[in-house]
Amino acid sequence: MSVAVTVNGEQRELPAGATVASVIASLHNAPDGRGVAVAVEGEVVPRAQWPSTELRDGTTIEVVVAVQGG
């Protein structure tokens, strides 16, 4: 069993039961603490809810970090 999700525009197959926390942990370069934020289906998911937010098939996730700007 697996779920197909879109992470920052890229399709990924994840094991069933994958959470926002497990996706972040799998990403290279993701900051451990401060400096990263996540939106699932256009809604911000607070850090405290990452471990409990399971991803369903077809979910779209955006993972953002600080860059130089403005």
Partner: peptide
């Protein structure tokens, strides 16, 4: 100082933070 938010870049070196 201002910063912007963009998609995580796996190839980025170092963080502005």
């Amino acid at each position: 100082c201002t910063v912007a938010l963009r998609r995580l870049d796996p190839a980025a070196r170092g963080s502005i933070l």
